[in-house]
Structure formats: structure tokens, C-alpha cells
Design a protein around this nucleic acid. Structure first.
Lengths: 333, 333
DNA sequence: ATGAAAGCGCTAACAA
DNA sequence: TTGTTAGCGCTTTCAT
């Protein structure tokens, strides 16, 4: 049995109107007489006609799909952002092409290229090292792009994030003020702008404000996996470190459990503040004190901003900074 | 500045060949003289030509895009499946349109409809209550569909999963054999086939094998959130329940922490086996004993099966059942 | 090995 | 308010 596709032409014929009229009805164009509209609607219903979005995309040069580049769907932080993105996208009738990038430059370039080939109307990009090649592609294609929950040091792309430097400074200062002389900064890769340019800066600012000199042995350049954190627990206690600020919740959970499993009392002997306030912070024992961020909102606002860009509406602010907080749970005294 | 798109026509003109030849080169058709191919390639490079996938999709009736319906990206179980799906999709040059369904029937129907409108080549569906309306849409559109990590009671759709009934039976029997007289079944919604038709069945089978009569007060029909689990901890201990088999890791983590926070000793006073073997099982303290499943593989195999279906290759087995295991960690004695 | 030309299903002027 | 008619950028016979 061959697949028999019903086209706009079939509807037009059956309803005895032109394709243009059917198109108008389908697209909610008001310039159609109610009677005609009803007649067309009836035929659409009877024939079970479904507009072909691909043809529409070709003709209109709009696909109502946006690309979402995500380092890793299984990371709770990014997944939470993705949820916000998807909800708002759905609200504005966009679909999402989700592409994992592994936070790997060449893969990012590759997925962006296929997103461009697929003629997405815009892109939400999550990732913290945006290469010049990538920016060049965005520019050349004149593609609306919003960076979500990430940062680009030269802020020349629209973005939605929190003030990572300030949040880090506040968290570290908090630890310092409680008597910790040596606070470690456990980030995630120092290749990434968010760590190298923002968190490190906030960390140094806190140190400087507390009159403590920077010791690079206290910054740990890691990945963000649970196991990395877990295995770091012994090493981190060298040099008299009694507290840490951690750049990822899964990493922090690993560190916490590594510490605890080695008999270290948290928070009595070691304090920990993590940064993403995902579900993990409530699941560990003790619960993790954390910087708080409006994760869902970061995604949602980014998508909203992208819709404006795609419509060439002017956006008042292209680099939106959402508020953060600091919540004390069980890993700080 | 207007956006100047380079088309296949421009390349043909510059290379002094026909569009057909350019098309052949782009698509790797061998029927092109090497010299011609090189000439075309050079022009493509010089003009920085990028084929328009939408036009290609319209002409060829293939979009190299598949739809993925997911109940909730932020659920670790589904996210892990999604990773497997995406990897294999990428390997076979497909992109993924990700659509959250909230495991809600009408939303599922709606997202499937837009996926069909977008002319996806196939669909991976995650969700456990597949309505007849949904199946009707799939059938009418002759859309290749694979159910991943979920089940449909009437197995008339291709699927990849584990034997949920057997896994449940084994886990529950395990608890029963250790002397627990009353083992609770905490599922997730009993609307879902996976719970109502499979887990419940396995649960009853275990009971029957152990010579214990079924008590419906020991079956908890819940959602799968952490808080639900947390708040269930008191109620679940009624009726002499000393063990539970839980249908979701986040739910299980909540229950475990609720129990622990109320001073209940796990596993000494209460035993717990969860079911998805996600990262959560390692993060809680004690770690959670669990049924193990090849999460990534379920996604990967489902996507692989879908590629076969999309190519009309014959698949030996349309209902693939992957092996599960049972791992003892800290919540069982 | 290459080209000509007819679509794919729809939108968007433009006319009427 | 409605219809006519070019395209959109590509693939795919069918010739040559």
C-alpha cells in the first residue's frame, strides 16, 4: 500500500477554492470569508489533511525549529535548563533539535553546521568555550544565537546567566569568614571561560578581600564527574584545605561522599559549597549548601530572548543576568 | 545587509556543470568523473556552499531527522536513554527533535502530530501508556516507531526494554527470602502499563512463589518525584512493611532519605531495592541496591532498530529484551 | 558521465 | 475576498 499524502492541492480541489485560500485558512489569515473558511475546514477534517512543515519551511524560509546545543543531557544542570528551553519553545510553537556536544570544540562546530544546514531559525548554545570558528559560522549565517547558563568572555553574543564571579566570591568569602584559611576551588575544566574567567576571578576577589594570598595549589582543574570528585577527596585535604567551593553538583556529591567515606566529618572538619542547586543537593547526606540559580528560568528566559531575536524585535538587554543566592544546608557550619 | 544564500545553482554555474552533477558530488554518487568532482568540490569550497536540508527534504522525502518523545528530560533514567539514542542517531547521520511529553496523553498526541507534520523519518517513543489514538496516528502515517525503555501491553509496536516483570519478581523474591514478610511495591503511576501490567505481575508472582497472599494495601500508586518518596516514609511503615521495591530511583532516594531522616535504620530496619540503576543509586547513603539495566544500550539499540525500520530492512526481532541484573548495595542486608 | 527538466508541497506577491 | 503564478533549493527520472 503506497503512502498517499494529502496535499494542499487536494484540499483546494475538494473545497473548490484555490490553494491560496486553503493556505490562508491553515495559517489563520483573517482575510477569508467565514463561510469559505468553514468549508475548507470541513474538507481538511474530512481528508485528514496535515500541512507539510518541510514544504512550508522551504517556501517561507522559516522552519519553526531551533537548535539546542547541550554539553550533556544527563547532567542535571543542563537538563534543567533544557526543560525551561523546551517549555518556552513549545509555548511559542517552536520545536527543538537537541544536539549533544560533549563540550568538545570540533563536535560543537560539527553540530552547529548541521543545525545551520537544517535551517533552524535560531540556536540556544550551552557551553563555555566558544571558539572563533563557531562565532564565525554564527555570523556568516546571520543566525540568532543565545548562550544559556554559560558565558563567553568577550560578551559579544546574547546570553542569559547569573553573575558567576560574584556568586563565587560570595560563597568563598562565606567560607573564609567562618575561619577556613585554605579554601579550595574545584571547578571543572579551566579551559572553560566560566571557570577560567569568572569563577577564578571571584575566588581571587574573595581571597583578596579576606587578605589571604592566592595559592594556585588550591585550585583544582577537573572534569565534572562524580568519580573525579570522589577520588579527589584525599588529595584535596593536603595543604591544610578545610573547605571547597565546587563548580558542579555531581562533582561536589562525589567529593562529599569521598570525604565522608574516608571518615571526614562534613561540615565539622570540612566545608563544602556547590554551585548549581540541582536535585543532587537535597539527595546527599548531609545536604549540600549551594549557590542557588534559577535554572529553569535561565533556559526559559534564553528561549524567550531568542524568540525576540528571531522576530527581529529589539531586546533591551542582550546579556541578561539573573539573580543568584546562597543557601546554607548541611555542608557548611 | 541581505542574507545571500549560495544555492546549488550558483555552484553549478561557477563550476560550469549542471545542478544534477553538483547534486551527485554532494551526495557521493560515484557516477562522476574524478576531475569533475574535484572541480565542483573546489567551487563548493570557494563559495562556502552548504546544502539546504529543507529543500533536500522536500525533494527526497527524507529529512534525516527523528522525533524523540520523552516524558521528562530531567529524569535521570530517560536522560540516560536519550544519550544512547542521540549517539547512535549521530552515528547514522540523523538529528533528533526532542519533545517533552510530561507523560501526558494529550500532550503526547500533540507532539506526535507536530513530529509528523515536520516529516520526521521515524520516532522513538518513551512512555508507558500508549493510547489507541496515538497508535492510529502512527499507523495512518506509516511512521516507523520504536518504544524505548517502556512497554505497551499489547506488544504491537517494536520496542526495546528489559523484562520488567521478571526483574520485579526477582527483586521482590530477594526481599521476601531475606525474611521480610511484608514488601511494599512503590511504583509510580498505576496508569502506566509498565507498572500495572508488568511490575505488579512480577510482584504478585514473587508473592505467590513465596506463599504469601497479596495485600493491595502494600501497593503504592504514586508519581515518581523525590518529595513523594520522602513523604511516603511514614505511611509505608504501616501494616508491618519492612521492605520496598521502588519503580524509580528519584522516588527511591526520597523514600530512603525520608526513612533515614526519621531515624529508621536502612537496611537493618527497612530494606529497599530500586529499579533504574542511575547515578542516584551511588549518591545516596547508604547506596541503593537496584535492579540494573543497560540504560544507554536501551536507547542505543532502540535507535539502531529504528534505523533498520526506516530503511525497510527486516529486523529479526521487533521486541528486543535486554538483560537485567540485580546489584546489592547498601539498602539490602 | 552529464544534463534537462519536472516536480516535492507550500507561501507570497500580485492581480482581480 | 479570492485566485494565479512564481518561486523556495534540491532530487530524480529520463535522455543523451
Amino acid at each position: 500500500m503506497e503512502k498517499q499524502t494529502i496535499t494542499i492541492y487536494d484540499v483546494a480541489r475538494e473545497a473548490a477554492v484555490s490553494m491560496a485560500t486553503v493556505s490562508r485558512v491553515v495559517n489563520g489569515n483573517p482575510n477569508v470569508k467565514p463561510a469559505t473558511r468553514q468549508k475548507v475546514l470541513d474538507v481538511i477534517d474530512r481528508l485528514d489533511y496535515r500541512p507539510n512543515a518541510v514544504a512550508r519551511g522551504l517556501a517561507s524560509k522559516k522552519t519553526t525549529t531551533v537548535g539546542v546545543v547541550i554539553p550533556d543531557v544527563t547532567n542535571a544542570y543542563f537538563a534543567q535548563l533544557a526543560l525551561g528551553i523546551d517549555d518556552i519553545a513549545t509555548m511559542y510553537k517552536y520545536n527543538i533539535i537537541l544536539a549533544n556536544s560533549d563540550e568538545n570544540g570540533s563536535k560543537e562546530l560539527q553540530v552547529v553546521n548541521t543545525l545551520l544546514a537544517k535551517q533552524v531559525d535560531g540556536i540556544i548554545f550551552m557551553g563555555n568555550k566558544i571558539s572563533d570558528d563557531l562565532k564565525a559560522e554564527f555570523t556568516r549565517a546571520q543566525m540568532p544565537v543565545v548562550i544559556a547558563g554559560s558565558v563567553d568572555a568577550k560578551q559579544d553574543l546574547p546570553s542569559v546567566s547569573i553573575d558567576y564571579a560574584a556568586a563565587t566570591k560570595e560563597a568563598v568569602l562565606n567560607q573564609l569568614n567562618r575561619g577556613n584559611k585554605a579554601v579550595a576551588l574545584v571547578t571543572g575544566s579551566m579551559d572553560q571561560s566560566i571557570n577560567k574567567d569568572y569563577r577564578l576571578k571571584g575566588y581571587k576577589a574573595a581571597l583578596s578581600e579576606a587578605g589571604i594570598s592566592f595559592d594556585e595549589k588550591l585550585v583544582f582543574d577537573t572534569d565534572t564527574s562524580y568519580n573525579t570528585g570522589y577520588n579527589l577527596s584525599e588529595k584535596i585535604q593536603a595543604n591544610g584545605v578545610t573547605a571547597a567551593f565546587v563548580g558542579d553538583d555531581e562533582l561536589a556529591a562525589g567529593l562529599l561522599n569521598g570525604l565522608t567515606d574516608r571518615g571526614v566529618k562534613v561540615p565539622d572538619e570540612f566545608e563544602l559549597i556547590t554551585t548549581n542547586d540541582t536535585k543532587y543537593t537535597e539527595i546527599t547526606r548531609p545536604k549540600m549548601s549551594s549557590v542557588t540559580q534559577p535554572l529553569y528560568d535561565i533556559g526559559a528566559v534564553a528561549m524567550r530572548l531568542l524568540t525576540k531575536l528571531m522576530n527581529s524585535e529589539e531586546a533591551d538587554d542582550k546579556n541578561i543576568v539573573l539573580p543568584y543566592g546562597l543557601i546554607k544546608r548541611g555542608t557548611t557550619r
